[in-house]
Simulated assay, not measured.
Amino acid sequence: MHPARGRARPRYVWRGAHGARSGGRRTDGGHRRRRPGSVRTGSRPGGARPAHPRRNPFALLYLALLLGTTLFAHLADPQLVRRLQALSSTDVHNLAHHPVLALVTSGCWVAGPLWTPYLWAVAVTVAPLERRVGGRRAAGVLAAGHVGATLLSQGVVLAAVALGAQGDDLLDALDIGVSYGVLASLGALAGLLAPAAGRSPWRSPPPWSATSSSRTRTWSPASATRWHC
Rank of each mutant, 00 (worst) to 15 (best):
L192F: 06
A139L: 13
R215M: 14
A4D: 12
G187F: 09
G187T: 04
G167W: 14
A59V: 06
N56I: 11
D168R: 11
A121R: 03
A138S: 12
T41A: 08
R203H: 06
A184F: 01
P117H: 01
P10A: 00
A143S: 10
A4W: 13
V104I: 10
D168L: 12
V156Y: 13
G135D: 10
A51L: 12
S22P: 07
V147K: 04
P205M: 00
F72T: 11
G148M: 08
V133M: 13
P221G: 03
L75Q: 10
V122F: 09
G198V: 11
A51G: 07
L170G: 05
R215A: 15
R83A: 15
L119T: 04
T116D: 06
S88K: 09
G148V: 04
A184V: 00
V147W: 13
P205F: 01
A165S: 08
R203T: 05
W14I: 11
V126T: 09
T69S: 13
S223T: 14
L61I: 01
H31R: 11
L63I: 05
Q154M: 07
G42D: 00
R217L: 15
P10I: 01
A96F: 02
T225N: 15
L152R: 15
A102V: 05
R203G: 11
P53T: 01
L192H: 07
V147C: 02
A149P: 02
N56P: 00
R26G: 09
A76S: 12
L163Q: 12
L151E: 03
G155M: 06
V92Q: 08
S179Y: 01
V124L: 09
R49M: 05
V104M: 03
A149Q: 04
R5G: 12
A64F: 00
M1Y: 11
V110E: 00
H97A: 01
A194L: 14
Q85C: 11
R33M: 10
T150P: 02
A210I: 07
W109Q: 04
A64M: 06
L193A: 13
A121K: 04
D175H: 14
A144F: 11
R131V: 07
L170T: 10
Y12Q: 02
T105D: 04
L129F: 08
L60V: 05
R7V: 14
W14C: 06
P207F: 04
W208K: 07
A76E: 12
L65P: 00
Y180H: 09
C229K: 15
G167F: 10
T216Y: 08
L186F: 11
V178R: 00
T41V: 10
P221S: 03
L192I: 08
D169A: 09
A144R: 02
R55F: 10
V122I: 13
P117A: 02
R5A: 15
W109S: 08
V122D: 00
D168A: 13
S185C: 15
D77G: 04
A64Q: 06
R137N: 14
A196P: 00
D172L: 14
V92P: 01
L101Y: 10
V110G: 03
T105C: 09
P113C: 15
V110K: 00
G37N: 03
C229G: 15
G16N: 03
A96D: 05
W115Q: 05
T125R: 08
A48G: 09
A4M: 13
T211L: 15
G135V: 11
D77R: 01
D28K: 09
L129Q: 07
R21I: 15
P128W: 07
A197N: 07
H74V: 14
L183H: 04
W202M: 09
